[in-house]
Computed example of a mutant assay.
Amino acid sequence: MFVNRCIRLAFKRSFSALTVQNPAEVVLSPPRGHNSLLMISTASQLETSIDSLIKLNRSVPSLQLVYFCVDSILNSRNAVSECWFEEDMLIQTCKQFKPSKDKSTPQSGTVELKLNGFDVVLPLAHTMFQNTLPATCFFVDGDNPHNWKSLSLLKVQLPFIKSSHFKYSNCLVELPMEKNPAQEYIITEHEGNMIKTINMLPASQYLIENEHVQKSKNALFFKLYDGAQVPDYMESYHRITVGGLGWGEKQGYLVLDRNVGSLDHKKLKLYQHRPETAVHFDRNKKSVVLECSTEQQSYRPTDSNSPIVSNQIGLGSETGFKLNGVWHTSQGEVVQIVVT
Rank of each mutant, 00 (worst) to 15 (best):
15 F>K: 11
18 L>N: 01
19 T>M: 03
19 T>R: 09
20 V>A: 14
22 N>H: 14
23 P>F: 05
24 A>V: 09
26 V>S: 07
27 V>L: 13
28 L>G: 06
28 L>F: 14
28 L>N: 10
29 S>M: 09
30 P>Y: 06
31 P>R: 14
31 P>G: 12
31 P>F: 11
31 P>Y: 13
33 G>M: 01
33 G>R: 09
33 G>E: 00
34 H>W: 07
35 N>M: 06
36 S>P: 11
37 L>F: 08
37 L>R: 07
38 L>P: 06
38 L>C: 09
38 L>A: 10
39 M>G: 00
39 M>P: 01
40 I>A: 11
40 I>L: 10
40 I>N: 08
41 S>K: 02
42 T>A: 12
43 A>E: 09
44 S>L: 10
44 S>Q: 12
45 Q>F: 01
46 L>K: 02
46 L>I: 02
47 E>Q: 10
47 E>N: 05
48 T>P: 00
49 S>C: 13
49 S>R: 02
49 S>M: 03
50 I>T: 04
50 I>Q: 02
51 D>H: 01
52 S>D: 08
52 S>N: 06
53 L>Q: 07
53 L>W: 09
53 L>P: 08
53 L>F: 12
54 I>M: 08
55 K>C: 09
55 K>L: 11
57 N>C: 08
57 N>W: 07
60 V>P: 01
60 V>Q: 15
61 P>Y: 13
61 P>M: 07
62 S>Q: 13
63 L>P: 07
63 L>W: 04
64 Q>S: 09
65 L>D: 04
68 F>M: 04
68 F>T: 04
70 V>K: 08
70 V>H: 14
71 D>V: 00
72 S>P: 03
74 L>T: 01
74 L>E: 07
74 L>M: 05
74 L>S: 05
74 L>Y: 04
75 N>C: 07
75 N>T: 15
75 N>L: 13
76 S>G: 01
77 R>K: 12
77 R>F: 13
77 R>D: 10
78 N>Q: 13
78 N>F: 07
79 A>P: 10
79 A>I: 01
79 A>M: 06
82 E>T: 11
82 E>L: 07
83 C>H: 14
83 C>S: 09
84 W>A: 05
85 F>C: 11
